[in-house]
Design a protein around this nucleic acid. Structure first.
Lengths: 251, 251
DNA sequence: TTAAAAAGTTGCGCAGGGTGCAACCGATGT
DNA sequence: ACATCGGTTGCACCCTGCGCAACTTTTTAA
């Protein structure tokens, strides 16, 4: 662990949460002397990782960070393929739609279409959700190949978020089996008391479940009936995306 | 300048250009010992700035970078407002459309719609274009307030990219005046021999020209006639976006 | 208008830690 | 089985990142 580098990372994280800050504030937040914070910012400035408002002397994230992320993003060409489908789903059901992928035993939201409405599910792009109690996470888990799945289960604490969170491993195993049988996953208020979510797997050309797609909404609107309608729509969409990614059912 | 931090930044830049690499390769690229490269990656790993493929032991950019950039990106809500307009422009004229903003005396591409077709203009999101020889750059320059404009001109070398690049300052001043008169800018192969581009300014609620929008295409397709058609369309769009941003013509 | 407080910047010296080296480990291929 | 290559780890040196404090600049307040 390189400390000075970690300081820099912390400074970026802080800037990203604050939108804009001066050296003293940054120094306080990451626990270093303001001269150090100043030098960190100097270093980032020369690479355009941050930019400085010459008048207020405040720093904020700069365009280089966008450029960097673009690389990560464009690797996920599933995103661009999925987006129109996601928009259509969102429109059709009036709910928010998320596209997720695995990273470090979490389901990372890489794309989102936010529904219109007063009370809608919402996540930030880049946000991470647990594997065992989100529909998108459970999909990724259920369809992972055996060794990976074992590894993930071993490394994941089945943390309890709500009354309905599955915290027992054998119970979770049964749930994963059910998901593979039905072809979609339901998160019935397992992560958040007020949100129900339906997820389906997306397969790439190698037959791996590299992404999952989910529709989330307030519990009250997500009736049994609506859930099954969504599940139907979702399965069609996930198959369409998978086939665009080059997936062909082998069996 | 903090060296170890700079090493880290260099490693990220390299990763972003290579998509994926092992420690030895990274070490070679940024000029450090492989043990150092290893420790840099360790540090980034713990923050999910990079992720490691456990099989190939290769590193690539991780989701945290996306999360960071999201912050930068969402500050630009002009982006989401502009996107549908951009799509329509692109569709209508069959050319690529870019949205740009100022950063460090450069015009940064923050959004792009790529046209279909064999030969189309293309830029990466996050890419920077010079102010004096791109339509989007000239717009941002022309409509900047006086002190800013002076500062930018002072700090910008009028580098020659093609035969048509304007490299004389008084000549550029005249060009900027013409742009303000017409309400749009033309880049007539001034940055790249084969590309013509039309740009228009976008104003925010404070009346500042905070963004500019441009349509780019291959020289051969961009006839005088088409250019004026595009300019008309572009002016309408840029006015619509400006008004959505809260801009009201005062004079 | 002046003084005081707050925030940014710079020089200095110490020691913590970042670095390269070299040994070690593990996988791959001959 | 051996050799090669890439990743990881322990070690020791000394570089450099750090805090401190002085200085500058801006803002606030009296």
């Amino acid at each position: 662990m390189i400390q000075s580098l970690q300081n820099g990372i912390n400074a970026l994280m802080f800037l990203s949460s604050k939108r804009s800050a001066g050296v003293t504030e940054i120094a306080g937040a990451i626990g270093v002397n303001k001269s150090t914070a100043f030098r960190i910012m100097q270093t980032f400035l020369t690479s355009n990782i941050v930019e400085k408002n010459p008048e207020t002397l405040c720093y904020k994230l700069g365009p280089a960070i966008l450029r960097l992320s673009q690389q990560y993003y464009s690797g996920l060409n599933a995103v661009s393929i999925s987006k129109p489908y996601m928009a259509r789903l969102s429109e059709g059901f009036g709910e928010s739609v998320h596209l997720c992928t695995l990273s470090n035993n979490r389901a990372v939201v890489v794309e989102q279409i936010t529904a219109d409405g007063r009370l809608i599910a919402n996540a930030k792009i880049g946000e991470e959700e647990p594997l065992h109690c989100s529909s998108v996470g459970k999909c990724l888990l259920a369809y992972a190949d055996n060794s990976r799945q074992e590894k993930m289960l071993r490394e994941t604490a089945l943390e309890k978020y709500t009354e309905k969170t599955i915290t027992d491993e054998t119970e979770l195993q049964r749930e994963l089996a059910r998901i593979k049988e039905k072809g979609f996953a339901i998160d019935d208020c397992e992560l958040s008391e007020e949100i129900r979510c339906i997820g389906a797997p997306i397969f790439n050309n190698k037959g791996e479940c590299s992404f999952s797609i989910g529709v989330s909404g307030a519990r009250s609107r997500m009736t049994q009936e609506k859930i099954y309608k969504i599940a139907e729509g979702l399965k069609k969409v996930s198959e369409a995306i998978s086939s665009e990614l080059g997936y062909t059912k082998t069996k």
